[in-house]
Structure formats: C-alpha cells, structure tokens
Computed example of a mutant assay.
Amino acid sequence: MHTVAVLALDHVVAADLATPIEVFGRVRLADGRRPYRVRVCAATPQVAGEAFRIIAPYGLEALREADTIMVPGCSEQAPPPGGEVLDALREAAASGTRIASICVGAFTLAAAGLLDGLRATTHWIAAGLLAERFPLVDVRPDVLYVDNGQILTSAGAAAGLDLCLHMIRRDFGSAVAADSARLLVMPLEREGGQAQFIVHAQPPVPRGSLLEPVLSWIEDNLAREVTLPDMAARCGLSERTFSRRFREQTGTTPLQWLLRARVRRAQFLLETTDHGVERIAAQAGFGSPTAFRERFKRVVGVTPQTYRSSFRSNASAG
C-alpha cells in the first residue's frame, strides 16, 4: 500500500487540496485493489480555507510515514509556512520521500529549500515572483509540470490532474493511469513540457468533433504507413487546413500525434504481451526495431526493455 499524505495549510486552495485526494483515492489495479492510501494532514487540528474549515485527521507525523507527499497551493492571504512544516518537509525529503506540489504549492517547497538547483514550475501568474524570491530555483513558466524524480511541481490547478496521472503512470503503468483518466473524464492529451510517460489510451475527443473519425482511424491503422495526405483526405480538407484545425483542437501537429499514438501502442504491448521488440515495432507502425528503440527512448526516457521490466514489476506489486 502506497501512502499519500496531502498537506493542508491555512488558506489552502480547495481545488488543489481535493485533486490528489480524489485522483489517488479512486485508483484501481486490474484485480480491483486500491494501491494508494490517502491521508490529509496538517500542523494544527483545524485548517481554515477561503470559504470553509476542515478538520485534518492527521498531524505532521503522517509526513514521516508517507511514500508521497502532496503540497497544495494556498491563497495570497496565507501566512508563510511555519518552521515545523518546513522542517517536516526537509526531513521527509532527506529520507527519500517523493514530494510534489500543485500550483503555488511550489512556494512552500522552495521555502524549504527543496527546489534549490532544480527546474520547477507553478501557476504562470506567479512564476515571476517564484523566480524573484528563490533565485536558486530554475523556474519554467511554460510547462504543465516538472518531474525531477523525487521532487515534482505542477502549474495551475488543472495541471495538478496531469501531474497526479503522471505519478500514477510512474508507479503502476499506463493501463492503470489510463483507467484513472477515464474516471476523471480528462480532456485531450496535454504535454508536460518534457520527456514524459504518456498514457497509452487515446485521449477522449469531443463527440461530433471533425477529428473524431480520423483519430479513430489512426488508432486502427497504426501498423500501416499513415501520411499527412491520408489524414487530411479522411476529413475532406487540404493538408494546410487540416493541420491548422488539428493544432487548434489538440495543441499539437498530426504527425506528432501519430508518433505519440505509436508510442502509446508500444507501451501497451510491452506491458501486456511477451512480444519481442521486432514484433512490437511492426505492430506499432515503426519502420524498424532500431527506429522504434530510438523513438521510444527519446519520448519515454528509457529503453523498451527497461520500460517493460519496470512497469510489469510495478503493476504486480502492492
């Protein structure tokens, strides 16, 4: 059982607090088990939000027992985090606990010194202030989240969903994360801004969208050669118009979408079959095993074999 401690500070942002509670609390493995135990903890028994008060069931001692600590953001009226909070976070980091922030929760991590020398992000409107207050932090305002391994940060509140799914992806693989995304009715796939694990399931497309048929067709034809003219023709549009509308609706290009779809297919096959690299490369539509290995490592960050070993062992753990 993986314990997630959600740290509630005074003036905590309600959406930031609720996101990890809901996302991690609803995760299911293939056999029905819940792999995460979620605990809300605070420095004081009662925590004041902007329009509510909560009674935290756990104190800061819960941080010592956690495998992951989530730090939600707080409003502008919030006082600086107390020394006992910062000390508890430093102690947890020193013991190897994974710690992640949502939105302006990055300021709390920075105040504890946990972001010094690291890349980090926060809500774009607060990025300049974060960089000004904490010059040792490499602030990246144009990404959804940053994964440094042990320490992670995310941008505005909605990006907290992306971050949580990414963490589930790291822990238990793409099938579990895809199921969680479906429960959340997540929008079209968004990129975190760096090489990252991608949920293998095709992101939902608004029903009736111009792209719905062509994206389904792409998924059904990944093993064959798929070109931009092919995709445009499926929509009855010129290549230029199709590319423009595709970017407007998905935030990426048709060919980048195709490549990510092929990587997702390969991830699924690596997790669920014993097929060799050559067969998976063909089934996912890569030109050769070499091209497959190079593209997969560039996108995912590890080789196909390392990926298979890692996520198969994680999915069976718990």
Rank of each mutant, 00 (worst) to 15 (best):
A178H: 11
I198E: 00
S180D: 04
A175G: 12
L183Y: 12
S154I: 10
R182L: 05
G156I: 08
H200D: 07
I168P: 00
L161S: 01
P141E: 12
R140K: 14
A159S: 07
D171I: 04
R182F: 06
G156W: 11
A181R: 01
V185E: 14
Q150W: 09
V146P: 04
V185Q: 13
S180F: 03
V139K: 02
D138Y: 08
G173D: 04
G173A: 08
V137H: 03
D179Y: 10
Q202C: 08
S174A: 14
H200M: 07
I151E: 03
L188N: 11
R169P: 03
F134T: 08
F172M: 02
A181P: 00
I168T: 03
A177Q: 01
R140V: 15
F172W: 01
A155S: 15
F172D: 01
D162N: 07
E191S: 14
L163N: 03
Q196H: 11
D162P: 03
D147F: 04
G192W: 00
R190Q: 06
R182Y: 08
M167V: 10
R133F: 08
L188A: 13
A158P: 01
H166M: 06
E189G: 09
R169L: 15
G193I: 04
Q150N: 13
L144P: 03
V139T: 05
S154D: 07
E191Q: 13
P141W: 13
A158K: 13
F134W: 06
L152Q: 04
D171Y: 05
A181L: 07
A177M: 04
G156K: 07
I151G: 02
Y145C: 07
D171P: 00
G193P: 01
D147M: 05
L136R: 15
Y145Q: 06
A177R: 00
H166W: 02
P187I: 15
L184H: 09
P135R: 05
I168A: 02
I151M: 13
I151L: 12
L184E: 08
D179G: 11
A157E: 06
G156S: 13
G149T: 12
Q196V: 11
R170V: 05
G160F: 08
P135V: 10
D179P: 03
D147I: 07
F172T: 03
P187L: 14
A175C: 13
F172Y: 05
L163E: 05
H166L: 05
R133L: 14
F134R: 06
V143F: 03
G192K: 00
D171V: 06
I168Y: 01
V185H: 12
